[in-house]
């Protein structure tokens, strides 16, 4: 993981880096500060340098705070990713002239690149944002807890199928109601268009089949 960014930054061993190993992770953070970011003075990097210390995490968190990292609450991988990108940006800013002329040759694609238009296909099921979203919607529908958010989502789908009108316990109605109303009206417009097309098709068929007749001689008034 992160092979491309590590290579770009000139890391000595980008191929072997294992980001799940705590020690390697910490080493890379230290390497980034020592070689690339250089946010602290050398003597202030002491706490980060103690990669075997239990206090390293505190130092790391302070470091991120000092850098104003936007993903300070994200996963470790997200945090590292941001630091790497930040380092790349600094590297580029130092040598704008050198990199500006760099050209990347596009490799010829064998197959056309199919980009899925369905945003659901690109969901990251392990991200905390997904977990938090599932948590929220499951609380609304009264789905019990489960370790795997995907299982909870499946349970929610089942409940919605068998009981199409779950009554939300507490809900700020105006926030939900207005967009729901708009969606309903848009849906109605679609259905109206469809029904009009159906009617037009029926009328087209009638021009061929219709032959309404009456015969008053058949009529008989009863008693």
């Amino acid at each position: 993981m992160f092979k491309l960014k590590l290579t770009a930054l000139g890391h000595p061993n980008p191929d072997e880096f294992n980001c799940d190993d705590e020690k390697e992770y910490r080493s890379v953070i230290l390497w980034l500060e020592d070689q690339k970011i250089r946010h602290y003075k050398i003597e202030d990097r002491e706490n980060l340098r103690n990669i075997d210390s239990a206090d390293w995490n505190i130092a790391y968190e302070n470091y991120q705070k000092d850098l104003v990292s936007p993903v300070i609450n994200g996963s470790l991988l997200e945090q590292l990713n941001w630091l790497l990108s930040y380092a790349v940006r600094l590297e580029y800013a130092d040598n704008v002239e050198k990199y500006k002329s760099a050209k990347v040759e596009q490799p010829k694609k064998a197959a056309p690149n199919v980009v899925s238009s369905n945003p659901l296909d690109n969901l990251d099921f392990s991200s905390p944002a997904f977990k938090a979203g599932v948590e929220r919607v499951c609380t609304l529908a009264g789905i019990g807890p489960h370790l795997d958010p995907k299982v909870r989502l499946a349970a929610l789908a089942k409940v919605l199928k068998s009981n199409p009108h779950p009554h939300p316990t507490s809900l700020d109605s105006s926030i939900v109601q207005q967009p729901t109303d708009v969606l309903k009206l848009l849906f109605l417009q679609d259905i109206r268009d469809l029904q009009t097309k159906i009617n037009e098709a029926l009328v087209a068929v009638q021009t061929v089949t219709a032959d309404p007749r009456t015969d008053t001689k058949l009529g008989k008034v009863g008693r």
């Binding site: 007749r213 009456t214 015969d215 058949l218 009529g219 008034v221 009863g222 008693r223």
Partner: peptide, 15 residues
């Protein structure tokens, strides 16, 4: 009344 037959035993005018 002429178009729509009414009553018990009435018969319709649509063949």
């Amino acid at each position: 009344f002429d178009h729509i037959p009414v009553g018990v035993g009435s018969k319709g005018i649509i063949p």
